[in-house]
């Protein structure tokens, strides 16, 4: 996918630049963009490392497990198809919590394990079950509370207050997740399998 996007962006840019006679600008942009990617990464090295260091403490202290347990009643309501005490719940909880905390490296493995368990409960191995749809929709509704990389980007481009977007971001994330759950519940009813 990225093959076409990346290639397409460059080819379109070169063609348009050729037509409009802006090859000098394009050449400068190639050099400058490559340079600013590196300066950006230097800022990110500091900010992201600080954050992942902090999150490592949370992880080692067992914050993911303890929050997962608190989440169980909500998960049983969201996934009525899954048998009580099934291991799928644990993977789903770990995926959600890791996403909420912004721990991508912990979220994806747990998410793939959750899909595996949901597949073992699935009646039709080609077609997504209702639990899978619900899990994927919540997962893709954006759960992360603090998007540290956006804050690092803002700081690199000299924002006067890089973190001012956290509060509105929280509300917007909440809005998208609530909308996702409602949509999943409605669509589940509407498209119930025979």
């Amino acid at each position: 996918m990225l093959n076409y996007i990346w290639g397409g962006m460059i080819v379109i840019g070169l063609v348009v630049g050729g037509i409009t006679g802006r090859m000098q600008e394009v050449t400068n942009a190639i050099i400058d963009s490559a340079k600013s990617a590196v300066t950006l990464c230097i800022t990110m090295l500091g900010v992201m490392s600080m954050w992942t260091g902090l999150m490592r403490i949370a992880e080692k202290a067992g914050l993911i497990e303890s929050l997962s347990n608190k989440m169980m009643p909500a998960l049983r309501w969201l996934f009525p198809e899954i048998p009580k005490n099934h291991v799928a719940f644990r993977h789903i909880a770990t995926n959600f919590i890791a996403n909420i905390l912004g721990l991508g490296w912990a979220a994806t493995p747990a998410g793939l394990k959750a899909m595996n368990e949901l597949q073992s409960l699935n009646r039709d191995s080609n077609t997504a079950s209702d639990s899978m749809c619900m899990f994927m929709i919540i997962n893709m509704s954006s759960l992360q509370l603090v998007t540290m990389n956006i804050i690092a980007f803002r700081s690199q481009y000299n924002s006067a207050n890089p973190s001012e977007i956290i509060g509105p971001g929280l509300i917007a994330t909440l809005g998208s997740t609530v909308a996702g759950v409602l949509a999943a519940l409605l669509l589940r009813k509407k498209r119930a399998r025979p």
Partner: peptide, 13 residues
């Protein structure tokens, strides 16, 4: 990707 976007931007696309 920053190079690709840079080309798109500079070309006027």
């Amino acid at each position: 990707l920053m190079v690709a976007v840079g080309v798109l931007r500079a070309s006027g696309a």
